[in-house]
Amino acid sequence: MTGETKSDAAESRRAQLLKGLAELALLSVLKECPHYGLEILDRLRAEAGLNLAEGTIYPLLHRLEKAGLTKAEWRIEEAGARPRKYYALTDEGRAELVEQQAEWSRVSASLGAFLERGGE
């Protein structure tokens, strides 16, 4: 296996692992205040370390909006600026975030303990 192939395989494993966490991280970003798509993507990349592709965020936002977990509105912040679509959590979205966060804490704690176990 060449160095490049090893690096591709590691990247693929990482992508698979992070894909499932994107929804939880996205809901968490929206917990504080409404954000627009690009802002959410940049925060997930910079703060959560999720290396999401540019075109990944909107299908996810679309799905969450359809599921009633988020609500969206178009805003024009300055005269002449392009409008941006802002997303905010609904009550249902907040409840879902609490549930997903609890599930993640449970899974990560038990998996962490399993992976860090002694040399049996």
């Binding site: 798509g37 690009l38 540019e54 909107y58 392009r82 409008p83 679509k85």
Partner: peptide
């Protein structure tokens, strides 16, 4: 969807 993608691309 098209408008949101447009806004994203022009901001980039």
């Amino acid at each position: 969807i098209v408008d949101e993608t447009r806004a994203h691309m022009y901001e980039r």
